[in-house]
């Protein structure tokens, strides 16, 4: 059990609300006095994950556990699942539909960025059932 546990429901298909969860986590991390670089890493990874849920999975849930030595995030959805995780991890690969790309999203940088800004990233995914992503950012 972490000292602070936060839970968010991410609505699907509403871009105007994407970023609410990561924005709220940012505000709390600032109040806790974490290093700005760590906050940036957490928020960028979380925002990418949040956007992925909106674009691909019709929403989902985010759980964030905050400890003095690390931040853990679990992003779970009941979306279509990822067919080829390795391919999805490649920069520039995207399955986002055109209407989403027209909004400036879907550049195929979501998962690679999440990996870049986290210390650990694990993906459990099953086609037709959904994806759960486990992320950890360590306090350096």
């Amino acid at each position: 059990m972490s000292l602070i546990e936060l839970h968010y429901d991410v609505p699907g298909d509403d871009f105007s609300r994407a970023g609410e969860a990561s924005g709220n986590v940012k505000a709390q991390l600032k109040k806790l006095g974490f290093d700005p670089a760590l906050i940036r890493n957490v928020v960028i990874a979380l925002y990418e994950g949040e956007i992925n849920m909106v674009i691909h999975a019709n929403g989902g849930t985010i759980d964030v556990s905050i400890d003095p030595d690390c931040i853990r995030m679990v992003l779970a959805d009941h979306g279509p699942g990822i067919a080829d995780v390795e391919l999805a991890m490649q920069a520039g690969y995207s399955t986002a539909p055109d209407n989403v790309r027209a909004l400036g999203f879907g550049a195929g940088m979501g998962l690679p960025n999440i990996k870049k800004y986290t210390d650990d990233m694990r993906i459990d995914t099953k086609l037709g059932e959904g994806t759960t992503m486990y992320l950890r950012v360590d306090v350096k």
Partner: peptide
């Protein structure tokens, strides 16, 4: 002006109470 406490652990306890 943002930090709840200089000590991160104490800040977390305060945040827990705040929530």
């Amino acid at each position: 002006i943002l930090k709840l406490d200089k000590d991160i652990r104490r800040a977390m306890e305060k945040m827990q109470r705040l929530n």
